[in-house]
Amino acid sequence: MQDAVIEIKNCSFNRGERVIFDNVNLTVPRGKITAIMGPSGTGKTTLLRFIGGQLKPDSGEVWVAGHNVPTLSHDALYQLRRRMGMLFQSGALFTDLTVFENVAFPIREHTHLPENMIRDIVLMKLQAVGLRGARDMMPQALSGGMARRVALARTIALDPEIILYDEPFAGQDPISMGMLLQLIRLLNDALRMTTVLVSHDVKETISIADYIYIVANGKVIGEGEPMALTQSTSPWIRQFLDGLPDGPVPFHYPARDYAQDLAEERL
């Protein structure tokens, strides 16, 4: 087995009385794109938060690049985060800075590089995402897809080893979608990164991932390479991949008997 950069071991997490995760196990091999899929609300983003140290699981271990994240001190955690990059669903650009300043931000914060070097790096990153010409624009002036690409440039500004994508395909038009897919693949291979991708867009994810985990009801209900999964006969996996409205994940939210509900008088 290739060495795993990220390992989630036996993690459980509850929010109040709701069980979000129950003994979940995940491995992310180096240099590959690993996707985590599942219906909305299963807590896929929570897994990303475990990896980034923003949340701690109630039990279990989260190993990232040889460190058990929940046990890290504040400073050690911040050090580790410099080796990671996370692309948020909304891009999360800093609204008071220009595109250029946004991408330059991590470089300025973590290095003492001179201004002309910073300029070169920022322009290179913007070129990689195709937005070098937009460098003086403000985030408010960008379209959603462009904002996300700038955020991507910012995420790779310090050449991280690990890159996390939170729902990168959500709400994108086909052209932006195509651009993103190409970028994710390119970055992962050219910069030799390890990619973790969280999404519920089946078609796109299957086209790009090297390995997929399907998470539902707080457990991993299926995993494997995309081709193998599409041939699976498990009803859970079938419902998810085929987009069937009813199945193991029920259409109806748990409720009382319908006839009884209608017939009951209101007090």
Binding site: Q54, Q79, G85
Partner: peptide
């Protein structure tokens, strides 16, 4: 609300 704080955390900036 726009996750700018979370993004900053993830960049290793407190």
């Amino acid at each position: 609300a726009t996750e700018q704080l979370a993004a900053m955390e993830m960049m290793g900036v407190d």
